[in-house]
Amino acid sequence: MVPVVAEIALENRNTFAVAKLNIKDGRQTLRKYPIRQTPTYMVFQDGKRVGSFAGVMPKAQILQKILSVIDVE
């Protein structure tokens, strides 16, 4: 079964990209962009964080939250 985030990345490849950070490899990043739980999603555009959300949720809800914060051309 393909993970939900991988599906979202493939289906929206012309809109945004998806990256994964394992917290054990991102201690410096965590200090700069701390989280309280996993999974947590942070949305960046033009080098700036434009939104974030956390928790397990359906695919459509994840997509809706992402699209609500990015500026699509």
């Binding site: 985030v5 979202i8 809109t15 945004f16 990209a17 998806v18 990256a19 994964k20 950070l21 394992n22 917290i23 490899d25 991102g26 201690r27 410096q28 990043t29 965590l30 962009y33 989280i35 996993t38 999974p39 947590t40 999603y41 942070m42 949305v43 960046f44 555009q45 080098g47 434009v50 992402i66 990015i70 500026d71 699509v72």
Partner: peptide
């Protein structure tokens, strides 16, 4: 997949919006 070493170039330097999933 990014790490502290690649975060700036991959995430902050992305030309398209990018969603970072902490796992």
């Amino acid at each position: 997949e990014v790490t502290d070493a690649t975060f700036d170039s991959v995430v902050l330097g992305s030309e398209v919006p990018i969603v970072l999933e902490y796992i």
